[in-house]
């Protein structure tokens, strides 16, 4: 049975774009069938995409900035990150979220060697390289080399800790607060906290806008 309502047609038309690859068309065919069978509505798909689009690293930056200025919040975040971010009305879908803090002597970096587990609620969609076979293969055996490729050179005495995420356990890195930011507001600080600094492949920006070296 063909369903000729507006939404089904809109999706079919996307699928008919001759530029689309075989697999993109296949995905559209599956979606159209699920809509026709009433298992999902086009509206619901649209709403899900809007929610995905609304998730950006600014959410994570807000959490880190608060941890930088509020020692009690920092303590709660390190003890139970899922509960701590819930205080900010951020609902984490995975069963567990762990915040790992960079210090003078310890640098943390996150990966998912199996697939692409990532704190999406806090950082938005993961970058392509995070999902790449190369990043997943290498960061667990040569973290320093990978970080160097990202332009981050760590002193030999800094311990590097790599956290391998799973569906049940997501991580977020709390980057070090840069020097010279003592006077800054939480909002100004949040602007220094990048996606990559919360993955651990970069440091937070310095107030001058440069990456801290």
């Amino acid at each position: 049975m063909h369903n000729h309502d507006h939404d089904a047609d809109a999706h079919s038309l996307i699928a008919e774009d001759p530029e689309l690859s075989f697999y993109a068309k296949r995905a559209a065919a599956i979606e159209a069938l699920l809509i026709e069978k009433g298992m999902v509505t086009a509206d619901n798909i649209r709403r899900r995409i809007e929610i995905m689009d609304s998730r950006t690293p600014a959410v994570g930056a807000q959490v880190v900035a608060k941890a930088w200025v509020d020692p009690d919040f920092r303590t709660r975040l390190l003890a139970n990150a899922k509960a701590a971010v819930a205080e900010l009305d951020i609902e984490v879908e995975s069963p567990n979220l762990v915040a790992v803090e960079n210090t003078v002597g310890i640098h943390n970096v996150i990966v998912c060697t199996l697939c692409s587990c990532y704190p999406t609620v806090l950082l938005g969609a993961s970058p392509g390289w995070y999902k790449s076979l190369e990043y997943r293969a290498r960061v667990v055996v040569d973290a320093r080399g990978v970080l160097r490729e990202f332009g981050l050179e760590l002193d030999e005495e800094v311990q590097v800790r790599v956290y391998d995420s799973t569906a049940e356990m997501r991580y977020i890195v709390i980057p070090q607060r840069p020097d010279g930011t003592e006077h800054m507001s939480e909002e100004e600080l949040a602007a220094l906290i990048t996606r990559d600094s919360m993955i651990g492949v970069a440091r937070a920006r310095t107030p001058a806008g440069e990456m801290e070296s």
Binding site: I14, E31, I45, I49
Partner: peptide, 9 residues
């Protein structure tokens, strides 16, 4: 767009 649709589906 098709990747976003796929994630949503």
């Amino acid at each position: 767009m098709w990747e976003k649709n796929l994630m949503a589906v």
